[in-house]
Every structure is written in C-alpha cells, then in structure tokens.
Write a protein that binds this DNA or RNA. Structure first.
Length: 289
DNA sequence: AGTCATTCCTGCGTGC
DNA sequence: TGCACGCAGGAATGAC
C-alpha cells in the first residue's frame, strides 16, 4: 500500500510523461529519501544529470527508470506514502517534497518525489543485461508478469513451513502483494491467513493465484486503491478501488458472501481482516512426539 | 537455512 | 486544549 496496482498506475504515468526526457538537474531535499543510494545525495544527482530517461519498468512494488545511454537505472520504491508527481515547475513545493528532478526541455514540468513517512526512496544502480537493477535481483516476478513461474511458486509453498499470508507477502516468492491485496485474495479464495503453505495442492495454488490476479486487475481498472490523498497517480489523482474492497478495513461489517460480521486480528504488527465463517482457521497441527 | 521479531517514519484518531 | 499513545506497514536487518 501502495501495492502492485498502485505502482503500475504510477509506472504508466511515468512512461507517458517522463520517458524520453533528459535530466537537467536534481535537488535532493531530504537525505533519507536517497538512503539506499549509498554514495549519497550529491552522487545521486550527479549520476542523473545529462542522461536521457528510458521506458519506465516495474517488478512487484519496485519501479525504475532506465538511463537510455548507460546500463543503470533510477530505482524507486514508494514505501508507505511515497508519491511520484509530474508537476508544473512553478507549482509550490509540497510539504513533504524530498527530491526534485528537472528536465532539459520546454515541457514546463518536473518530477517530484513526495513522501510523508519516508519509507520510500530513489537510488541509482547498475542493471543486469536484462535491464533489472542488480539490487532487486532477489525480488520474484509478480503475478501479472507473463513470465511469472507458477510452478516455482507452488513448490516454494510446499517446501516452506510457513503460513499462506506470510508467503503472499514474501517478495522473494511472489512480488507485488501487500497487506490489502493479500486479505482480498484470501477472502475470495475462502482461505484463512494462517493456513500452512505445505498443505496446498497444485489446484489450490492455481485458484489462489487466479484470485490474486483478478483482484489486482480489478483494482488496476479503476486506478488503484486510495484511502486518502496519500495514494495517487502522477497527476495527484486517487483511484476508486477502496469502494470495492471485500475484506480489508471491514471489521464488524457483514461479509459480502454470507453476512457474518468480518473480523480483524492483530497479525505481524499489522492487521488481518477475514470472515470467520467463509475462512475457517486450519486445524491445529498435531504436536510431534 | 529458514523463520520471525524489530526497526525506520509521520500524521491522524482516540482517550484521558 | 493538549498530551500521550496506538496505528497504518514494506522490507532490510539481525537474532535465533
């Protein structure tokens, strides 16, 4: 949150408004926003200046802008509250403006990284021959990627002694899924979040992945999920999928399938929302002697 | 090796 | 009115 659909909305905006332009200068206004660029803000700015931006790419919740003329890319993660905005250069600075990227053309707009909670950031990294920034080589392909390896995901579930929601949030197993879409997909699949992954059959895995893809595609179709002004596209506009959520944030409201009041449980320093009737907890595992 | 708790951050809502 | 606190949570990190 922003999760895959929200990040993809941003990627499309960058592709339309930023790709092809040449950077004339970068202002780093907060060091924490470039903390993943270990050489520091000045190095980040110098590394971008004069370069042409290629086609915006995404894997899971990461997105990047390749430099058209070198094997490097500006990697972006929005974290909890990060925004990439294309704004008129004369628009007043946002309160939480962290990084400004100016361009060497007459379009009159600049790229702004705005981030209230500063969990996100930008950094510059070398890219592998396939274009992937080296530092995210461990991030699995996401379920909307045609090359997503469903069999590898299933085998990962079978091998693990973990539970299904942890697995869905494990970005090295499957990327792009966060707390919201995990709860939504599990509700659609009628699966409790603590079901052991080792119990999954191949059809069960396929069915769950289908729900993950369905809910993400549905969100994408309406511009993503926004609870407030924090989650916006490059033009600062919110999506509408929050109106379509069936599980997340619906504590005490009736399950849209069976009418049973939905529940919220503290889980891994966050919350899990589920229907106690449609999503029965797994049988306790018998202790081994 | 694999799993899991901890940590970073700010604004908002709530209770006293 | 104001203060303290809990909560929102992605992913790197270190502990076990």
């Amino acid at each position: 949150m922003p999760e895959l659909p929200e990040v993809e909305v941003v990627r499309r905006g960058l592709e339309r408004w930023i790709s092809g332009r040449v950077v004339s200068g970068v202002d780093v206004l907060h060091p924490r926003a470039v903390r993943r660029h270990l050489a520091g803000g000045a190095d980040f700015a110098a590394g971008l200046k004069g370069h042409r931006i290629g086609l915006a790419q995404r894997r899971g919740k990461y997105l990047w802008l390749p430099l058209a003329d070198s094997p490097a890319a500006v990697l972006a993660h929005l974290g909890m509250s990060g925004q990439l905005l294309v704004q008129p250069a004369d628009a007043p600075d946002e309160k939480h403006l962290r990084i400004r990227v100016r361009f060497d053309d007459a379009q009159g707009t600049e790229l702004r990284f705005v981030d209230q909670r500063t969990f996100g950031g930008l950094s510059l990294h070398g890219t592998a021959p396939d274009g992937l920034p080296e530092v995210i080589a461990h991030i699995a392909r996401d379920p909307l990627d045609p090359a997503f390896d469903e069999e590898a995901f299933h085998q990962g579930l079978r091998r693990s002694r973990s539970t299904i929601k942890r697995a869905l949030l494990n970005q090295s197993l499957i990327s792009g899924v966060g707390n919201i879409y995990a709860d939504e997909a599990l509700w659609r699949a009628r699966l409790h979040y603590e079901r052991p992954t080792a119990t999954f059959t191949r059809p069960r895995t396929t069915e769950l992945l289908g729900h993950v893809r369905d809910v993400m595609n549905a969100a994408l179709a309406v511009g993503g999920t926004s609870f407030d002004s924090l989650y916006v596209n490059v033009n600062g506009e919110s999506g509408y999928f929050d109106r379509s959520l069936d599980a997340y944030g619906r504590e005490d409201e009736p399950c849209r399938r069976c009418g049973t009041p939905m529940r919220r449980r503290p889980w891994m320093n966050r919350s899990s929302y589920f229907c106690p009737r449609c999503q029965r907890p797994p049988r306790p595992v018998k202790a081994r002697a």
